[in-house]
Design a protein around this nucleic acid. Sequence first.
DNA 1: CGTTTCGTTGAAGAGTGTCAAGGCCAGTGG
DNA 2: CCACTGGCCTTGACACTCTTCAACGAAACG
Lengths: 251, 251
Amino acid sequence: MNAPATGFSLAHLKVACSNCNLRELCLPLGLTLPDIEKLEELVSTRRKVKRGESLFRAGDRFESLYAVRLGFLKSTVMSTDGREQVTGFHMAGELVGMDGISGEQHSCDTVALEDTEVCVIPYERLEDVAGSVPVLRNHFHKVMSREIVREHGVMLLLGSMHAEERLAAFLLNLSQRFEARGYSRTEFVLRMTRAEIGSFLGLKLETVSRVLSRFAQEGLLEVNQKHVRILNADGLRAIVSGHGTSCESGS
Amino acid sequence: MNAPATGFSLAHLKVACSNCNLRELCLPLGLTLPDIEKLEELVSTRRKVKRGESLFRAGDRFESLYAVRLGFLKSTVMSTDGREQVTGFHMAGELVGMDGISGEQHSCDTVALEDTEVCVIPYERLEDVAGSVPVLRNHFHKVMSREIVREHGVMLLLGSMHAEERLAAFLLNLSQRFEARGYSRTEFVLRMTRAEIGSFLGLKLETVSRVLSRFAQEGLLEVNQKHVRILNADGLRAIVSGHGTSCESGS
DNA sequence: CGTTTCGTTGAAGAGTGTCAAGGCCAGTGG
DNA sequence: CCACTGGCCTTGACACTCTTCAACGAAACG
């Protein structure tokens, strides 16, 4: 917005991890100054992705990981017969593209749901730096492991929860992630459509809509299109944990 | 079987990765001899886990990864309210325990479904070796990435497939993994119960049983309790890909 | 050989999906 | 500024898949 992107939205800007306000989310604590310098050499470019455009697609040659600076993205996988599944939503401070490491190419699509900016991390260089900076190497492993654990949670959700529980868990998860980034945990905008929420949660968009309406009717939320305000977080938590009515306080 | 396990099923046996017949599954190609020596120093012990016992549990302090030498395991996560979800089944040549890296402790239970033997890989030492052996570091990253991609596939399955499609995909996946290990791809034994299959696939055990019976009735399989013989793999593939009837050949 | 775990099958019911119609909102062009 | 358009969301009625509950049979284990 403030500076026009060059050509194919590749902005060759000087990166300064040391000044980045996402430091706590993105990097390990206790990096020494020389370590940070190696890192800044590694993360040399940024890239802007406009809403609707893709950061990478399944089949693209894998070259880099991406750290989200600002914006919002989704990742999707597609089956041979064309079914699409949203595997995750990504926001500032998160690392995307790790699916590509295993093969020579990406196995999912990652698309910006709003205008987005990422730090480009050339993977070959990351491998090198990981060899010489133990703290960073360990941090990288933790990030990948966290992704595995996150996906375990999604499997639990998809495999054993009802529509209401899935939605409640989803909203609480978003709430928590917004809060961690300094935004309100009770009031936020859903950057994705009902269909995308549904795909992620293994539901149809109509079901998502219905459940949101039901939550609103029960006083748990206020919903106004993409705008959501959580009125009773404990109520949502109760729903996630086995369907306790509202506050587990009586009835 | 051949040698009695010491005390707590901790067998201090000399490990020889260079002779291990799982080399192709477990290790990167092109390791130099000195690299392999470092590796064998790293993987110094084995551990036996009897059927029904757990390799580790959620909450256990994370110390090691494990490479399955022989046997069969399942991993499960549990929600706060007690719902259990099987997140994966593991067989020879696969690496388990990566969930533990992100925190200081494991986040899932991993239990042997038949008598199992694993190579213990102390994680701190792995971190060190990963620093000095680039090929191994890269391989390790690929293994973690592959796990992420695998879970994407499970999410696709859980989020967008019907019971028949899930089961067909599951059987084909098992078939392929058995084949990669030199076993028959058409005839094998299910080491897990119907309930465990159901948990993994987000179905109830009755549904699993019914669908298996239906497959058998349609001539796709022979099922005899845990013993399965695949008669028409293409038929199963057709089911996974959008429900083509048997062979896509007519009706 | 009894006990327990596991698997199969049926009938009824709940939870989502499907189909369809209509409303809301932002962006566009007159 | 207003009408128009298309995408997104909401809501209802109905269909269908899967679950639930229950009974029984088969295999595994001590």
